[in-house]
Amino acid sequence: MKAFRRIKMKKLALTVMAVLGMMSSVAMADIDYGLEVGIRQQSGEVDSNLASVKSQMGFQFGATAHFPISGAWHMRTGLLYTQRPVIVETDATGDENKISMNYLDVPVALMYKFEEYAGVFAGVSLGLNLDSDAEVGKVNDVKSPLTPIIFGASFKFAPQLGATLYYETASGDAADGLKNYRAVGANLQITFD
């Protein structure tokens, strides 16, 4: 188990170093980069007719960057800590089990900027599971990497302040008995361009 955790941490460290290296190697280019922090409403489904899933509020924070490709087209990427919690409720008894799965997300999306201060994006996010927890029992077979599809819009309302609104969907298993995770979220941006 310790060896597995060491391998997982090495993969995490290599991913962080690769993203930071990519961001610093083009730091002199005409890119927008900044910090984001926000909330997200997470939901999903369960593989049982005897239980259902209640959505939960989670948080997301980290760094993002928009790299120019050609004209109005940009690549949007970054490194984000993302919480993906849900509550599984047993229909017959009403018992609830809060499940929390936390990921390090590396989004890779194609972004079209209408103006320098506004654009829309679509792509995928590579989510590496950092940890998982359940109030009752254990979360088994957590899928990592999780690769949700993301759609969103990003805009500035002040020279260095903006917001990102997004929808995320991950079809298929997220963990044993949990599937089809979806989220909507809003992040506040502080940009350094």
Rank of each mutant, 00 (worst) to 15 (best):
E45A: 09
F61S: 11
D133M: 10
Y117D: 12
P107R: 08
G44T: 10
S43E: 03
N49Y: 04
D141A: 06
Y112V: 02
L80E: 02
E89T: 15
L104W: 09
D47K: 12
P85S: 04
L128Y: 10
L80D: 04
G127R: 01
M57I: 13
M75F: 14
A51W: 09
Y81N: 07
E116T: 08
T64N: 10
Y103P: 15
G44M: 06
T64P: 05
T82K: 04
G58C: 02
E96P: 03
F67G: 06
M111Y: 03
L104C: 05
M101I: 15
G94V: 11
G137Q: 12
R76W: 03
R40Y: 00
L110I: 11
V37A: 15
V46P: 01
G123M: 05
A122D: 00
F67I: 15
Q83L: 09
F114G: 09
K138I: 05
G119T: 00
S100M: 08
M75K: 10
S144H: 07
S52K: 15
S43H: 06
S48K: 09
Y112N: 02
E115H: 12
Y103Q: 11
D91Y: 00
A122Q: 08
M111V: 03
Y103M: 06
G94F: 04
L130V: 07
P107A: 03
V120S: 01
V53I: 13
S132A: 14
T93H: 00
R84F: 06
S132Y: 03
A63N: 02
G119R: 12
N140D: 12
S100A: 03
N129G: 14
V139R: 08
S144M: 08
V53N: 04
M101S: 05
E96F: 01
N97K: 13
V37C: 09
V86H: 05
S55E: 05
Q60T: 10
G123R: 07
F59I: 10
L110M: 12
P107G: 04
D133G: 00
A92R: 12
M101R: 05
Q56R: 14
F114T: 03
L126G: 01
V88N: 04
V108K: 08
M111K: 15
V142T: 14
W73S: 06
T64D: 04
Q60V: 10
G94T: 12
D133K: 15
M111R: 15
R76E: 04
G123V: 00
